[in-house]
Design a protein around this nucleic acid. Structure first.
Lengths: 138, 138
DNA sequence: ATAAAAGGGATCAAATTGGTCCTAAAGGTG
DNA sequence: CACCTTTAGGACCAATTTGATCCCTTTTAT
């Protein structure tokens, strides 16, 4: 339950790669895809979402590619995940103000708490932190 | 992201209904389904899972049906959700001890933290609590 | 025996996931 | 301008998961 999809996984790998490049360095989607070992066309879609949300800046044509739009230390894991997976939402009932049945509404507060906790954990992690952390060996 | 499925929602509604019955009272799946407003055949599958895991006791034939196998105060929301949705697992990489790539591994600790937090929240809520809480009006 | 119930397998449609492909648009370069 | 490079965006598609339904079997009380 609550599993991150490939899309989310790819998104994280891709943006971490960008964050590891020298500041201002433009990366091609083909380069990022190869480095992150992600299907290129799929990653292209993911980076389109990033660009729309202003996480990265894209430029076309020769010399074009992607750069982080903001310092990696100001981009949180939550932003990246939500960019491609949508909002952290443990239950649909968190959308409307009221639940339409008596039943699930009892659990409303619990889901709200889960949502708040997860958001807070993911917001506390920046892409910069992830990019600088060492590879896992164990 | 991280959404509970219908199955999980139905599971919660169904077992809350059981918990609201007088202790020892046997409920038919048809009765539970009607009360919880859940498709009966679907709910039957859900309660099969409950029975296998020992959350409820089932008996067949005339007078048969379902009863909670343990006091509602000892059944946690986590157990119910995991019974039908599988373990709380924000990322596949939490299964193996090591991640097979360098990339996602950096995030490993974060997902572990999410898992721990969510499990702890859901474990703190019992079906008894949910069954006794008032309907939501707002 | 028979009726009443859950158990369990097979099946199925719809939605979501995980992609691919193609054309268009934008930006450099000779 | 013509041409190449690179992202943008839409259409499309296969595999998987979700959300069920159906049917037959097994168990149990009467």
């Amino acid at each position: 339950m609550m599993e991150l999809t490939r899309k989310g996984e790819y998104a994280i790998r891709g943006i971490i790669y960008l964050a590891q490049q020298p500041p201002g360095r433009v990366s091609l989607i083909s380069e990022i895809a190869a480095a992150a070992e992600v299907p290129q066309t799929f990653l292209a879609k993911i980076f389109q979402s990033f660009a729309k949300l202003g996480l990265v800046t894209s430029s076309r044509g020769t010399g074009g590619g992607f750069v982080l739009a903001r310092p990696a230390s100001t981009i949180t894991l939550r932003e990246v995940v939500e960019a491609v997976e949508g909002p952290i939402l443990p239950n649909r009932c968190l959308l409307g103000s009221a639940c339409d049945r008596g039943g699930p509404c009892r659990v409303h507060a619990v889901w709200k708490q889960v949502q708040t906790e997860v958001v807070s954990i993911l917001d506390a992690v920046t892409i910069d932190t992830l990019a600088r952390s060492p590879d896992c060996k164990s």
